[in-house]
Amino acid sequence: MDKFPILSLPAVPLRQVLGGLCPIDLFELLQCSSRTKEILKSFEKANKTFKVGVDFQRNWVEIKGVCKFYVKEEDNNMNKDKENKKRTFCDREVPISTDEAKATNTYWPAGEKLEGTMNVGQNFVKTLGVGQLDQILISAENPAAECLSWLENCNVRLENFNLVGAEPSHADKLATTIFSDDFLSKVSVNFTSLLEPSEGWRPINFSGDMPVNMFKIHLHHSQWFTGKQLMAMNCSSIILHHSALKNEDIKKYLEAWKSGAYPKFMYLSVHVNEANKLNFDSIVNGLTDDKPTVADNTTSVEFKREDGDSIEICLGNGGKHFTAFIN
């Protein structure tokens, strides 16, 4: 066979050849060997293209903008579609089929969808050499602890973390894992949790001493969330439901913002729990002398800090919903 040592081409012609490939071609070429990965990674296009998302709820792994790998269980109906193709994910070779453009079905033995999703996800983390997952989504039906253990083994950071829920009996243990300085430091963009820990649960490893740097944190059950932990949030957007935060907690955060802290801050929304109620005057006292306005049962006022940024704070729903946003 005539040799064409394509990877031995000088950079300019190699880049030109790669430029004629679409992302899915580059994605496949990158996985051919460690050598192709090493060389292609030096090209900007290959570096920028591949982001991996893992959805345990719907059992798929997505290479963003390139293709999606669905994890399905083997059944009698899929034999016609398999085209006898197979593909190896980590150590497991499984049948695959392609049923639409950019989508590949992978077939796993009954009861192994979770393992299949983990294998497919880990395969691409390794072969593409990504150090950060674009997204991970865990549902209440998934054994979240196993998913998080898998995530830790992959040794990757996260852009977007979504925990839809968990078995009530596992909720506290899971909460201890994800509401920790270590785990929170791994998420860079969005952290969304619908997890509902028990009433008396409190985080052990989330001290509030380390700043939490991410774009948005959204907690649907935050009765455990303290003022000290709020002060650690260096986020653009903070959304808390079932919160037990007090007037002085929110006031302290706003005072810090007014004195120049939290440069990324854009939005704070606090829905307090049944036993809690916020007081507008207690929150704004000392922050501004402007007279608040009342409209539609919502009290609001706007004030500025030294750099000119203006914030509008509102309290409505009978003291149950507080918002602050930068104009």
């Binding site: 040799k3 064409f4 040592p5 394509i6 990877l7 031995s8 060997s33 050598r35 192709t36």
Partner: peptide, 14 residues
Amino acid sequence: DSSSSEDGMSEISL
């Protein structure tokens, strides 16, 4: 991948 030619690059044939 372990293939390497004399110049240390992969030998690929079309």
